[in-house]
Each structure stands twice: as structure tokens, then as C-alpha cells.
Design a protein around this nucleic acid. Structure first.
Lengths: 231, 231
DNA sequence: TGAGCAACCAATTTCAGATTGGTTGTTTTT
DNA sequence: AAAAACAACCAATCTGAAATTGGTTGCTCA
């Protein structure tokens, strides 16, 4: 009598459908555990799992080891807070991502930067040249890069830049030693910053992007050299 | 003999300064606990705390209950959460930012995507073509874009993409009506997706970036048309 | 062959206890 | 009387073991 008799898996599936339909279960609410469902429905765990698998394939629920079974669609993994990101990335990814995004920011900055923005970029350059310590230099360097991001006039892009920057600060490069107490007057960054800001001031988008790319590549080489050379 | 004798707090401060200077302590590294410093420096905890308070005021370290004392400046508060960003941006910025970042993601994907990644992209395309409703189509479209971001193998970049995506979903475009119940078989996105994934599969970075750019521009035109035409 | 079953696995949660910077009140020292 | 020393306590946080949960494997039985 195949028409009447159902196997346990079918039975469990039917009961579960009824359960989810009748109860008006809120989205994201947790279902009983598989082991509890076994007893409640009076079927084996294998049957319950088969039924749950069907419902999951239909997108009615999602499951996760250690968490449980939940109504609705699986939430997208939220990797968007700084701490989480920091825990999953590494310095190389940070550098690659900067090289990917900041040139495009520079390109847009060349299009949108105001005269005042460009003035502030030049101020940052002057201050970084006059820095007495590496810490001061880095502070003005950071500020310059942020002003460029601000000058895109795009708040969302700026927010992404800030996220990237926070991650960069949080990811430990370890202790990078400087062999001099302060940047040399001919430190590579000075000329590169100069070329970058000049390109932005002249509204040359391609050149601005390229200048930023070269600058970041130069920064990266410097970091690697300092690490591999043991100082 | 005030010139020679120092009180304990001064002594502790001096010793701590020397400790931090000599050891080349990496930024974000943790100092011994206050109670340990008491013993190490042979002074009372009150003195240690007074010295630490001075150093903290100077910005050389920061402290937090239950965590400890750390070298460097206190990590900045995370203003990069979705809600904050959403409140400060608008749909145009979202679109501009997508056009800025996603082509570069596609470019990197062409370099790093695995065979399995590309298989999944093609699955997304097939599913989106077979979609019965706009909601299903959009779900598979989203999935496709995310798989491309995943295929860069860069967790940080993926996180930025997710942030951008969350903001996009949160920023209201208003109710966009579709004049048909489901995407046409010749909906513009299908061919564009095809070209994009094809470029990635062929490892053609420039073409992948360009395909993504064209696709997003096409999407934008479509959105604008639907809005200005009142449907 | 397929379902039932038990044991096991790995991811996650949970919870108690330890740790840590911060605070308060009393005692000791100067 | 003022300041430092000291102890006890607090709340936030970390730590680690135990329990929980979905997923997997291998064996048994019909």
C-alpha cells in the first residue's frame, strides 16, 4: 500500500512542514535539535536529517554545526567589523588590498578634489618632511592618505578606506626598526607624494592612479627589505 | 637630598621608560600586569599605577580593564559599522563605489580564481537564468558577485566587498517596479555576466575588469531609466 | 540495498573560575 | 594633616573544560 504507508523520512518531512507552517515560526528562530526532534516525532535521527535536508534544500531553513537549525535563509557571513577582519587577514593581504583600492581613490580624487583639499595635501607633505621622529612622519603620512580619500567627496568610499586603514593598523607587522631616528630628506616617499599630489592638482586621473600605485609598491618594497634584511 | 632620592612613583616611571625604550617593544604588545610590575620594579602598585597613568597621558600606552596594558595608542572606535555608513551615503555613491572597486576585484579574480570558483560562477549564472522570480534572480546575481569576490582569495578584500554590499542593500533605492514578473531571457545582465566569467576563466585580467565595469554601468543605466521613466 | 543505530568528529556554546585595570576605605608613614 | 601603602573589592575580560549540536563513519539488521 505505497499510497498510504509512508516511510519514516516522508512522515518526518510532512510533520515538520506542518510544524513550521502552523507555528508561524519567526524567521531566524531556532528549531529543536535533531535529537529532540527524533523523540518528538517518534522517528529515527536519520529520517529527521533526511527531512531537514529537504527543507534546507528548499531554502526554508539552514543548519550549522554547534549552533543548531534555524528558520529562514542562511545569513551572509558578517565579516565587517574590524576585529573579525583583523583576525582573518594578514599583512600581505592588507598591502595587496591597498594597492588595489588606493590608486582608484587617487584617480577619483584627481577628479573631485577641491582647491582646499589640495592645499591640505600639500600641508601634510610639508609637515611630514619636517617631522622630527618616525612617529610624527607616519602620522602626517596617514593624514595625507586620508585627505586624498576625503577629497573624493564620497563618504562611502571614505568609510571603506577607514576600515582598510584600521585593519592595517591592527595587523601587526611586528617591530620595524628604523636605522635612522627620522626620515632622510631624500626618503623615497617624499618625491612619490609630490608626484601624486601634483597629478591630482593637475586633474590627471591616470597619472594620479599610477603615482599612488608606484608609491605603494615602493612602500611595500621598503617593508620587505626591512624585514628580510633583519632590520 | 631631593636631587638624588626619588619617590617610588618617579622611580617606577623612570624604570618603565627605560624598559619600553630598550626593549623595542612592538606596538600593540602587552606589558606585564600591574601586579607583576610591582614585584619586578620593587615598588607599590600605587606607584606603578601613577607611572602608568603618566605614560598613558603621554600616549605611549593604553589600558583596559580585564585586558591589560598595551603599547601604542588606544585603537580608534569603530565608526565603520553599516548603520553609520548607511546614514551618510546615498545610492549614487554606492554605485560609484561599486564601479570603482568591483572591476578591480574582477581583475584580481581573473588571477586567483580556482577551477571550483569558476564552476560556481557558472552555476550562479545558470541558476539566475532559470529564475522564476526577480527575487530569485537577484539572489543568484548577488551570489555570483560574491563568489567573484571570494575567488580573489583575499579575505580583507572580501570583507570590504561585504561591507559595500550590506550598505547597498540598506540604502533604499525605493520600490523599484519590474514591468515583467521575471527577467527576460535576453536581459542585459546575462550576456554581461557571461563575458565577465569568460574573461575570468581565460585569466584575462584587463578584460575581466572591463567586463565588470560595463556590467555595472549597464546596471546603473537600467536603474536610472526605471526611476526617471516612473517604472 | 537501505534504514537503523551507535560511536565519533569538529564547530560552537556555555559557564565557572581566574585575571586585570580601576576603585574604595583603612592603616601606616612622613 | 597629607601622602603613600595596603588590602579588599568591583566589573570587564579572558581562559579552559564540559556540554551541545549538526555532520560523518562504520557496523548491524531486515
Amino acid at each position: 500500500m505505497a499510497l498510504i504507508e509512508e516511510n519514516d523520512a516522508q512522515s518526518a518531512l510532512t510533520q515538520l512542514r506542518a510544524y513550521m507552517a502552523q507555528q508561524q515560526l519567526p524567521v531566524n528562530s531556532r528549531l529543536p535539535t535533531e535529537r529532540e526532534l527524533c523523540q518528538a516525532l517518534g522517528v529515527t535521527r536519520t529520517a529527521v536529517r533526511k527531512a531537514l535536508a529537504t527543507l534546507e534544500a528548499e531554502g526554508q531553513l539552514w543548519r550549522h554545526v554547534g549552533k543548531g537549525t534555524f528558520v529562514g535563509t542562511r545569513p551572509i557571513e558578517d565579516l565587517t567589523d574590524i576585529a573579525t577582519i583583523t583576525g582573518r587577514t594578514n599583512p600581505v593581504e592588507v598591502m595587496r588590498t591597498r594597492e588595489l583600492i588606493e590608486p582608484e581613490i587617487a584617480r577619483l580624487a584627481a577628479l573631485n578634489a577641491t582647491g582646499r583639499d589640495i592645499e591640505e595635501m600639500r600641508l601634510c607633505m610639508a609637515k611630514s618632511r619636517a617631522a622630527d621622529t618616525w612617529r610624527q612622519y607616519e602620522s602626517w603620512d596617514n593624514r595625507l592618505h586620508r585627505v586624498i580619500a576625503e577629497s573624493t567627496q564620497n563618504k562611502l568610499l571614505l568609510a571603506l578606506f577607514d576600515t582598510l586603514n584600521s585593519v592595517r593598523r591592527a595587523v601587526a607587522w611586528g617591530r620595524l626598526r628604523h636605522n635612522k631616528p627620522r626620515p632622510d630628506p631624500d626618503h623615497h616617499s617624499f618625491a612619490e607624494h609630490e608626484a601624486l599630489v601634483e597629478a591630482i592638482a593637475e586633474r590627471d586621473m591616470d597619472r594620479a592612479a599610477q603615482a599612488m600605485r608606484r608609491h605603494l609598491e615602493s612602500v611595500e618594497r621598503n617593508l620587505l627589505r626591512r624585514r628580510t634584511a633583519g632590520r
